[in-house]
């Protein structure tokens, strides 16, 4: 069974940028509402398969995308 991680952002713009870059890099992600238990900064976050955690972290670092936190 897949397990999901979430990247939480301060702004929707940053979430959209992450979604776009991830698609270019073939990292499967989904833009979803922030799960209630994780709270909310902008309403949406990026859901990813935890198998891609390293790729997601590299993406955020290399593109210098401002994010709030990663929840695994």
């Amino acid at each position: 069974m897949k397990s999901y991680g979430y990247v939480l952002f301060y702004s929707t713009s940053a979430a959209l940028r992450t979604e776009k870059v991830a698609k270019i890099l073939n990292i499967p992600v989904k833009l979803v509402s922030v799960p209630r238990q994780l709270g909310s900064d902008c309403g949406v976050c990026i859901q990813f398969d935890t198998a891609y955690e390293e790729g997601i972290r590299e993406l955020l670092e290399s593109k210098r995308i401002e994010y709030s936190r990663i929840h695994i």
Binding site: T12, S13, A14, L16, R17, K20, L31, S33, V34, S40, C42, G43, V44, K63, R64, I65
Partner: peptide, 29 residues
């Protein structure tokens, strides 16, 4: 976080992408 707000945000974001590319900037934000 609802669908129309995200749709609106996407329009604005796509405009950032097009304009960033027009001026040779890699980060649309």
């Amino acid at each position: 976080g609802h669908v129309l707000s995200i749709e609106a945000a996407k329009v604005v974001y796509y405009a950032r992408e097009e304009i960033a590319e027009l001026f040779g900037v890699s980060d649309p934000l």
